[in-house]
């Protein structure tokens, strides 16, 4: 799978499909981050655009205002996102399940309103990033071939997935899964519940912020209605849930499918008011909730499990 994603931009030179791939990789990172908190730790956040926006805005602001390298901006964005995550998470993690989800929406709204009323951050228009010489240091490349953008997005996803995988290996992984399954029992077994939720949130916020920073650099425009919106939070959840909440590969599958649906419908049915992609997403999510909560990955596993059984039956 990893190899395939690496080879892809060398083979595929079509601008449309290159763009789809870059966007899918970025949203897979964000969704993998959401999945750590929502799918694996069981804290369904509808406010993840907060962290995506934090990354995009921090990077953009430092670049435009102080001319700082986007790489520095990315690192700074991570730190701000982690700090923000802890400040938000500390009170909000007192709430459980639905209550938690709703509080994250409210948080997102408050922060959105604050930002779109802040002139230094470009208010409702956002921040336009300056075009610079194409180089790795500037994190800007020629848009004729998106190969470098693709490779960096892939590296970003790789690093994110590795960080999450490492987090899940030892004690932290066991603890967050225990928290999802039964918070009270986990606590009785000595799990400091809120602290581990905060660990998961901190890592999740940092990765989401990286994705946001990178998206900002890729699109060269930071629009609050995109990077800080409820719709983006929704999109992140969609990707995570569609692929398969709780699984490591799920977000990548979900991101790819959604990105293809989105771009395809946009091309086939151009014009304002087109929302066929939303209709399809909605249907898919409802289907997954009702039929297979483990998402497309779960459906795939089910099919795979069924196949060898049939083969054996034939042999007999």
């Amino acid at each position: 799978m990893g190899l395939l994603l690496f080879v892809y931009p060398f083979v595929v030179k079509d601008a449309f499909w290159q763009n789809v791939a870059v966007l899918a990789l970025v949203s897979a990172s964000a969704a993998a981050a959401w999945n750590l908190l929502g799918g694996i730790t069981g804290q369904v956040s509808f406010g993840h655009s907060i962290f995506y926006g934090t990354g995009a805005y921090t990077t953009g602001y430092l670049l435009v205002r102080y001319g700082l390298s986007p790489w520095v901006g990315m690192a700074a964005g991570c730190l701000v996102a982690v700090a923000l995550g802890i400040v938000i998470g500390f009170p909000v993690f007192r709430l459980r399940s639905h209550y938690f989800s709703i509080a994250t929406i409210a948080m997102q709204q408050v922060i959105f309103i604050i930002v779109v009323n802040n002139k230094a951050l470009g208010a409702a228009t956002g921040i336009e990033l300056p075009l610079r010489e194409a180089s790795l240091a500037n994190l800007q490349f020629s848009t004729r071939d998106l190969l470098p953008y693709h490779l960096i997005a892939l590296a970003l996803l790789g690093v994110s997935s590795l960080a999450i995988w490492l987090f899940m290996q030892g004690k932290a992984g066991a603890y967050v899964k225990a928290i999802r399954d039964d918070e009270d029992v986990a606590r009785a077994m000595g799990v400091p519940v809120r602290r581990y939720k905060l660990y998961a949130l901190a890592l999740s916020a940092a990765i989401t912020s990286l994705a946001g920073s990178y998206y900002g650099m890729y699109s060269l425009f930071i629009d609050p209605n995109v990077v800080l919106s409820l719709n983006l939070s929704i999109a992140i959840v969609l990707v995570g849930v569609l692929g398969g909440a709780g699984s490591l590969w799920g977000p990548l599958v979900g991101a790819w499918v959604l990105q293809v649906i989105q771009e395809e419908t946009r091309v086939r049915l151009s014009g304002a008011g087109n929302a066929l992609d939303l209709v399809i997403y909605g249907l898919l999510v409802m289907l997954i909730a009702v039929v297979e909560p483990a998402g497309l990955i779960g459906i795939g596993r089910r099919l795979a499990r069924r196949l060898p059984v049939r083969r054996r039956a034939v042999q007999r």
């Binding site: 066991a174 225990a178 999802r180 399954d181 029992v185 799990v191």
Partner: peptide, 12 residues
């Protein structure tokens, strides 16, 4: 813990 194996349950 329903999503875990017996061993994982105890490891928590």
């Amino acid at each position: 813990f329903k999503s875990m194996t017996v061993l994982e349950n105890v490891m928590v």
